[in-house]
Amino acid sequence: MYIPKMNALAEMDDILAFIDRFSFGILISTSSGRVIGTHIPMLANNDAEQLKLHTHIALANPQWKDIEGQEVLVIFTEPHAYISPTNYIKEESVPTWNYMAVHLYGHVSILHETDQIADVMRRTMVKYEPTYYEKWLELPTDFKQRMLKGIVTFEVAVTEVQGKAKLSQNKSQEEIHHIIQDLHASSLASDSLLAEYMERYARKEH
């Protein structure tokens, strides 16, 4: 990912928080010489020194068949918005797009042990709907086993982390203020969310 120095999202605490909040990522690998991707929820172990991701895909999804040992790319991205040049002081300005994204590179290992698979499923349910996990525990064992046999679970051992926060850092404080106001006035929830991140990182820099 192209990351100008001013746009670098470098603090691991920020990156881990971003992954946790926007955990529906894109897993990109290759199969038969072709690049393929799957949109799936990801769980991070939140260990900055040995970061690992855990996830699962459907057994019917052929992406898993060639993925063992591959270096893959996982992309997390969410708040983004069009930025109008009307927010700038200079008339000779052009539109742009502000956004945040995290790219993780790593190597894949398919999990085969029943307890490993069950743990990933437990963590997934507890994260997204803990009350359902309590119900899951009470479901018949044969049903749960059938469901688990229909998925492939794996781990991504992260080898490289890239974080980017393109938040108008090259603009004046007055212009950033105008952009934030414009985004908050938008009817799009994602615009307001981006404005919140702009406010947060503007405070960090001053």
Rank of each mutant, 00 (worst) to 15 (best):
G25C: 01
G163D: 14
G69P: 03
S32C: 04
Q50G: 04
V74T: 04
E174Y: 10
H103R: 00
E138L: 13
H39Y: 05
Y2M: 12
F22R: 10
L73N: 00
Q173N: 14
A189M: 11
H39L: 06
V108R: 06
I15S: 10
K135F: 08
S84T: 02
R21S: 04
I67G: 01
I110M: 01
A81N: 02
G33S: 11
K52L: 01
L139M: 12
K164I: 08
K90L: 01
H80C: 04
N98W: 04
E138K: 12
A185H: 10
H56I: 09
Y105L: 06
H177W: 13
A8N: 10
T153P: 05
L9C: 02
S84F: 00
V120A: 05
R203M: 15
V102G: 13
D182L: 15
E205N: 15
P62R: 03
N98M: 08
H178C: 13
E91H: 07
H54D: 12
L59F: 13
P140W: 05
T96P: 07
D13W: 05
D66E: 09
A60N: 02
S32M: 03
T124M: 05
F24N: 05
Y88C: 00
M121K: 14
I176G: 09
Q181E: 14
D47V: 02
S192K: 14
I40G: 08
D13C: 01
Y197M: 06
D191S: 14
G25F: 01
L59A: 04
K5E: 10
K90S: 11
K166A: 13
Q181F: 08
D66T: 14
I40L: 08
L148G: 13
L43N: 01
I117A: 09
E92R: 14
D47P: 00
D142A: 02
G150P: 06
S109C: 03
A81I: 00
D14R: 09
S186A: 13
K127M: 13
G150S: 15
V156T: 06
A81D: 03
S29F: 01
M121R: 10
A189D: 12
E138G: 09
A60G: 10
E129H: 04
Q173H: 09
S109Q: 06
S190N: 10
I40Y: 06
A48N: 07
Q63M: 09
Y132V: 01
G163C: 07
E175M: 04
K5G: 11
D115R: 13
Y133S: 05
E199P: 12
I57D: 08
M6D: 09
S29P: 00
Y2W: 15
N46Q: 12
R21W: 03
H206M: 15
K5V: 03
L167Q: 13
A189L: 12
T55R: 02
R203L: 05
Y105C: 07
E11Y: 06
E155V: 10
E160N: 07
T30V: 15
Y133I: 01
S190F: 08
V152G: 11
T141H: 07
E68L: 02
I89T: 14
T86L: 08
E199R: 10
I15K: 10
